[in-house]
Each structure stands twice: as C-alpha cells, then as structure tokens.
Design a protein around this nucleic acid. Structure first.
Lengths: 199, 199
DNA sequence: GTCTATATCCTGATAGAC
DNA sequence: GTCTATCAGGATATAGAC
C-alpha cells in the first residue's frame, strides 16, 4: 500500500517488471499503473526510466531478502527446510497463474550486457542476498562455508527453477529441485532461530 | 559457419539474443550482424522478428541439448559428472568474459508474459531437454524417476547459476551449485555410455 | 533474390501552463 | 507538485527498383 506518489511509482514499476522485464515496460505503462502522469515520473526521478528501475529493484530486493528466512524459520532440519522453500515457491507460483517471479533475476538477465547501471544494482542485490543468507544460516548453527554454499546453491536453483516453471507453466522444476537439494541435508540440525538479519 | 543467407540470419540472431535477449535486438542489428539487408530478412522470414527468433531458438535449443551428454559421457560416477558439468560451465563463462549464456533461458524469462508464441517455443525446447536428458541418464543405468529428477534439477540449477554468475561476474554460483548437487550422488554408477539421443 | 528508401507507429524525454 | 502537449529518435514492417 504505497501512500506517496513516489512510492506508488516504485511499487507499480516493480510489479510491472516482475511480469515483463525491463525493456517491455514503458514510461507510459508506469504512469498508467501508478496513476501518476508522465510529467510526475520525471519530476520525482530526474534520472528517468533507469533511475526508477534502479530504485524499484532495490526495494524489491530488500523485500525478497526476507522470504527465505521467513520460510526456513519454521524448520529445525536443513533438508526439510530446503524442500519446504521449493514447495512454498511452487505453491505461490501455481496460485498466481505462473506469473510470479522475482523482478531482480528477470531484469538482471535482460540487461546484463546492455544497461551497465542496472547490472551493477542487480549484482549488489544478489550479493546482499548471499551474504544475508549466509549470515542467517550461520546464526542457525551451520559452519560458515556450508552456510555460504547452501545459500548460493539455493538461490541459484530457485531462480533457475522459476524460469523453467514460468515458461513451461508447470511446478515440476521447482519440486524436482527441492527433492534433489533437500535429501542431502536431511539430518543436519538448525539451532534456535535468531532474529533474521535484513541485509 | 552458416553458408546460406537464411542460415547466417539465424546464427547471427541466436548470438545476438544470447547476449541481449529479445527486445533489445533490433532488425537492424540482425541485418548488420548477418550481412543481409533488412529487405532480405523479410523475404526469408515472412513472419518478421518473431519468426526469426522462433527459428533461431529452435536451432540453438537443439545445439544446447547435446552439451550435457557431451560432458557427462566422460564420467562413470554421477556425482563427479554433475560437478564436472558446473566446472565446465564456470570455465566457459569465465573464458568468454561472463557473456556466455544460453539464449533460451535469456529470451524465455523476458517474453514469458508478453510474446505468447515465443513462450510456447521456449517451453517446447525445455521439455525436449528434460525428456532427452532423462532418456540419456536412463540409458546410462539410472532408474527413470531418478534420471528425471536429476535432469530437471541440473538444468534448473545451471540456468539459475548462469543468471547469478553473469550478473555478478563471478563463477562462484556455478561452482557452489556443483559442489552442493554433486556429493549427494557420489557413488552412483553410470553404466557404459550409449550413443547420446538428440531430442 | 537482393537491396534501398520510406511509411507508420511508439519510445523516452522535455517544456511549460496550471 | 501536477499534468498536457509535443519533440526527436528509433522500432518494425513495407514497397518497389534492380
């Protein structure tokens, strides 16, 4: 529920780019979806489309950073937790008609070679996720190297499975990824959850 | 090395879209990269840009379908093979300055909600990969359900790690994914390789 | 079949009245 | 701060000479 014009522009942009990526979202679309006329877009964001996308990505990245801890908090076994994350993702995606996908990866893959500034922002968000996830799993009792590897593999598999699932309109990739990643860590205990870090 | 005008248009398009996706590649770019003037593009592909992209994706999809079997053929242990695939991918990506990425996922993520025809083509290619990989691992002695799960998880993790690695310009995501996926299957034997199927 | 010139539309961005 | 009208450039696609 964004209140200010600025915020409504950013949330509308994140939502649009989650579905259509960067290039296919026009300033006119953002104006229509946010309720603000084109002139206001440039009034609030002097840097134009790139700046709007940049700030929308940063906001969305911060929101998504809390998703994995939120799910994993409910588990005391790492293997079960990993499977749970993928099952939750599969459920969400099916519930939204296979339209749900994080805007970061969607935009990142598209602009990695074309809009340097957005690639850099996306890279920073990914780095924050990986560092934050590592800190979280370390706080839950995993050795740091394991925590890092599990986090990186989890995020990579999730993002890839999202692409397959969305394209094929089938949750199989998410469920299969969870069933392959999870069992290896069954029996690895997670200690009591500390307050989740927000990187 | 494409010989005909038609072929050179398709290979140039695949190469361009591997780097820039769908929207950011213009007909003018395709004309320049292939050496064919704009008029020839429409002479050979009456359906315009969408048809060119469609055929370029199908060609590239068939080429990529053989990559995993090519690497895995060199192994007799499934765990080592999986790690080997990710190490090979990491090496390739670093060698190309983090520009290397399969054009299918790149385009698929971008057009899943905007260009129905290309989403359908991409879905067909993914399905072909998964079916082909399952058949390959089955031929190498794995039970069918395991073969399917391993294939789906492998492709999903690869594609996701590609996005992270390309954005962060770092091979860590590929290597971490390989080191998490591989160990679970160490000790699972692959029988003598049959001729790889080309789905 | 090859190639040039152009038509039509849509984009991001700006100027300036309210 | 809000909003409208418009600019300049680039997109896909076409027409038609060679």
């Amino acid at each position: 529920m964004a209140r200010s014009t600025r915020e409504s522009i950013l949330t509308a942009t994140a939502e649009l780019m989650r579905h259509r990526g960067y290039g296919a979202v026009g300033m006119k679309d953002i104006a229509a979806a946010s309720g603000a006329p084109i002139g206001s877009l440039y009034h609030h964001f002097r840097g134009g489309k790139v700046q709007i996308a940049r700030e929308a990505l940063v906001n969305a990245g911060a929101a998504y950073a809390m998703l994995i801890p939120t799910v994993v908090d409910g588990y005391t076994d790492l293997g079960a937790a990993l499977e749970g994350v993928f099952e939750q993702a599969a459920q969400d995606m099916a519930a939204t008609g296979f339209a749900n996908m994080c805007p970061i990866a969607s935009v990142a893959a598209e602009v990695a070679d074309t809009v340097a500034e957005l690639r850099e922002v996306s890279a920073g968000i990914f780095t924050g996720w990986l560092d934050g996830g590592t800190a979280y799993f370390t706080a839950r009792g995993l050795p740091a190297p394991t925590a890092r590897q599990v986090t990186v593999a989890l995020v990579a598999a999730l993002e890839g499975a999202f692409v397959l699932a969305r394209t094929m309109r089938d949750t199989e990739p998410l469920l299969a990824a969870g069933r392959v990643l999870g069992p290896q860590f069954r029996g690895v205990a997670l200690t009591a959850a500390a307050p989740a870090p927000a990187p």
